[in-house]
Amino acid sequence: MTTGDVTAVTVHRLGPLDQVPVGEGRAYVVNGVQVAVFRLRGGGVRAVSAVCPHAGGPIADGQIDEAVVVCPLHQHAYDLVTGCSPTGQPPLRTYPVHVDDEGCLVLVTDGTS
C-alpha cells in the first residue's frame, strides 16, 4: 500500500492473522480507534468499527456469516462490506483490511484518523 499519493493513508500492521480464529472477530485499537476484525469462513477478512451504533455493543463479540455481523446485545445486523444495517440502525464504519504475504493483518485508515 505505498501509493505515493499525498492524500495520506496510514497502514497499520495488526499482527498475525491466526490471532483471529476462523469465523470469529477480535478487537484492536488503531490510533485510539476501536476496530473489529473478522475472519470469514470463506477465507476473507473484514474490518468495521468495534462499537455498535445502536447502544454501544461490542461488535467483535458478534456472530458473522459471509455477509453480515450480528451484534450480541440486541441482534442488529450490519453488512460487513458497506457497514449498512438491514435492521435499520445507523451504519458501522468499515475499513479496508487484507492479509499480506507474511500472513499479517494490514488495516488502512485515512491519514486524519
Binding site: V20, P21, G25, R26, A27, Q34, A36, A50, V51
Partner: peptide
C-alpha cells in the same frame, strides 16, 4: 481454546 478467547472486545462505554 482459541487465541484471544478472553480478550476484551472493547465496548464503547
Amino acid at each position: 481454546v482459541t487465541p484471544g478467547q478472553f480478550r476484551t472486545a472493547l465496548p464503547l462505554e
